[in-house]
Write a protein that binds this DNA or RNA. Structure first.
Lengths: 239, 239
DNA sequence: CGGGTTCTTGACTATCTTCAACGAAAGTGG
DNA sequence: CCACTTTCGTTGAAGATAGTCAAGAACCCG
């Protein structure tokens, strides 16, 4: 999952449902925190996410980290580059995964329909990543966080009463590394959104969208959050 | 072309050389400034770049622009999303292009080898974009510019005497929009690199790499440019 | 309940952007 | 071919945004 420009994206990518292919490739469960693969691993399989959330990351030697993407239900992760995995991938939450042979993507032999599905997923991936560049290159902190919440609302938002609720299973640090910010900035932005009554935090990891239109506007830079004027300390020495 | 992490990238992606496929799909030339396609166009063809440089861009309503990638010789551009182009694409310099039917990528029918080549290109694209996220999300201005020059040096550097020379056919604004910076910051960074004797500007659009190792170190944040201490004005009014 | 992690908040700082001006380069038309 | 106009690149000064460092609060887990 990437953060894409709302209006431009195909409204609902038809979630691919791929058929099971025998015992060797049965769906399986990955516990939270366990790694699915690491950068440099030989890629034998690619994975369709049935449920749960994965985290794809890259790290520098100096420790700087970038969350490349979150793998949400309907996503395909593990596209190989020259036969190798290119990122680390671990589970944010317990996840149910359907593995497919890399060859199912790379050679049409066997199952043409499956091949086409995986290829379509790869092309969607490219398109979504292109949109995400906009985010990282050109959006402000507020726009990034708002965009992130918008996308999650569309994909995994739950309607409760008259509001939509969004679960954020990942840590603030994950969100920061995904959006190219720091945890502090992400936290502060949540606080701003909260104080502006655009969102509410039901729990730390559960956001309620109180003003969806406002959030969308913020995501696209059509609106701004007024920074809280810091209470003017009465240093009226001069007057 | 994306800016990838030097050491991690496959050293020399074997530049795909694709065979011609009859008169309907003969290579052709695109003049500088002319558009190859625009976002939203139906994608009938995808293109292999023989020579020249293309520019893939996306723009916001409010005018903010992101250069998604530059299309250099050996690159394939125009990967479709749901049959549509997803970016604008125009020529930075006159370019020679080999078009292929979109179906050559999307269905294996016809020419399996071509199909595999295009698929490999798409997967490389995904990998390169993943690296590029690191750039936009986590690198400083100096690191971005240095990384950009490093990549170009590897791909299109010309050895002249004892130094490598790199042509930058695109404008500073293009570079800025590619790296997620402003033209001013790009310009200032070039000046810094020049004053530090890491590079020299032969012409505005021609860079000479004077200290390749230093440039690589800068690209990875292993070294820093000392900001020029501004000449302390003798306002010794107090003293 | 206790201890460690995660999240939030504050104060301060660095970096990059913005706004503005100027110079250089390139395109245009006589 | 030269003068004129326009675009592009560089530089400066000032300001804004996000980062850093540090501390406290909230949360989680055993």
């Amino acid at each position: 999952m990437y953060v894409t420009i709302p209006s431009v994206t195909a409204p609902d990518l038809p979630l691919i449902t791929l058929p099971d292919r025998g015992p060797h490739h049965a769906a399986f469960t990955l516990k939270a925190g366990r790694f699915l693969f690491r950068a440099g691993d030989t890629a034998r399989l690619i994975y369709y996410v049935h449920s749960g959330v994965l985290r794809l990351t890259r790290v520098f030697e100096d420790g700087r980290r970038q969350v490349i993407a979150f793998g949400y239900p309907g996503d395909v992760v593990g596209f190989p580059v020259d036969g190798l995995h290119h990122t680390d991938c671990d589970a944010v939450t317990e996840a149910r995964l359907q593995p497919y042979r890399r060859s199912a993507l790379e050679t049409g032999t066997g199952d043409p329909e499956l091949h086409r599905h995986l290829l379509t997923a790869a092309l969607h991936e490219i398109g979504a990543m292109q949109d995400h560049f906009m985010m990282l290159g050109r959006k402000s902190a507020t726009e990034r966080v708002a965009s992130f919440l918008c996308v999650l609302k569309e994909r995994v938002g739950q309607s409760i009463g008259s509001y939509d609720q969004v679960a954020l299973p990942m840590s603030r640090a994950d969100i920061a590394d995904f959006l190219g910010l720091t945890t502090e900035t992400v936290s502060r932005t949540f606080t701003l959104l909260r104080k502006s009554k655009v969102i509410a935090l039901h729990q730390v990891h559960t956001v309620i969208i109180r003003q969806p239109e406002r959030l969308t506007a913020l995501a696209q830079g059509e609106d701004r959050l007024t920074p809280p004027k810091r209470a003017r300390a009465p240093i009226s020495a001069v007057a």
